[in-house]
């Protein structure tokens, strides 16, 4: 193994006149080093001005998503040695506005997330004195996979539909809606369907499946979207047959 590898890193300062540029850095190639370790080496030893987000370095906080050689990745869980001999392109996540260097603007997702009401909805709120809502392991398994979303935004960066139509509510938000719909404690499916049945809800998706492929936590947003399309189609048929009050 060579002892170093070249990173081709996107640089961008909003104060400058020009658009994003590429800067090259050679970093040590060590078998235990991730792409994030390489970036931190640059930040600490080579160029203190490089800007990127990171925190837990164990693949759970969701901060350090970037496009690595064109593919959305958690850089803390992506090893440099898998890209040897390099070079490795490190770019901000695609489909988001760039704020600075490798940092993208997540405002759009943060604004969309509450729209799908990702919380438990019930009319008959038990108080905690009444104890827990019973939920069998099988009922837990029904939604568990969708609850693993870390909001890392790799699925948005991979989604060709979101790239073309930023109004599309997007894979993670739909997966989280499904997470609550499938939770035996929740009664909010109707309210969420009202949101997702809209044009920019689930219909934009052309079932490319990239979101599921790139998810680092094995969530299946594409599956969630398909299920909503079925629910919405059924709803439309019902709407045709019955007045709303009878549904």
């Amino acid at each position: 193994m060579a002892d170093s590898i070249r990173l081709e890193v996107t640089r961008y300062r909003p104060e400058g006149d020009s658009g994003p540029e590429v800067q090259e850095y050679d970093v040590p190639l060590r078998k235990e080093w991730t792409v994030l370790d390489g970036l931190n080496h640059v930040k600490d030893e080579v160029d203190t001005t490089l800007a990127f987000r990171w925190s837990c370095r164990m693949g759970i906080c969701g901060s350090c998503g970037m496009n690595v050689d064109g593919e959305p990745k958690l850089t803390c869980a992506t090893f440099l040695s898998d890209y040897a001999p390099g070079p490795v392109r490190v770019e901000p996540l695609a489909n988001f506005p760039i704020v600075r260097d490798l940092v993208v603007d997540l405002y759009d997702f943060m604004e969309k997330l509450p729209r799908v009401k990702p919380w438990i909805i019930r009319d008959d709120d038990l108080t905690v004195i009444d104890g827990e809502y019973l939920q069998t392991p099988e009922e837990l398994d029904a939604y568990k996979q969708f609850s693993m979303c870390i909001n890392c935004m790799l699925c948005y960066a991979a989604c060709p539909v979101y790239g073309l139509d930023p109004e599309f509510i997007g894979p993670a938000a739909i997966a989280l809606a499904e997470r609550y719909d499938l939770d035996s404690r929740d009664r909010g499916a109707r309210e969420r369907l009202d949101v997702l049945i809209e044009h920019e809800g689930v219909w934009g998706c052309t079932f490319v499946g990239e979101c599921t492929r790139v998810c680092p936590k094995h969530v299946d947003p594409a599956g969630a979207i398909q299920r909503y399309k079925l629910k919405a189609a059924k709803e439309n048929v019902m709407a045709f047959l019955l007045p709303r009050g009878a549904r």
Binding site: L134, R185, D186
Partner: peptide
Amino acid sequence: LLQLEHWGCPWSRQPDGHI
């Protein structure tokens, strides 16, 4: 912890559905 349960935390369960 029960409050968190009511807010949707996916606590691991016994076969009968209790925490």
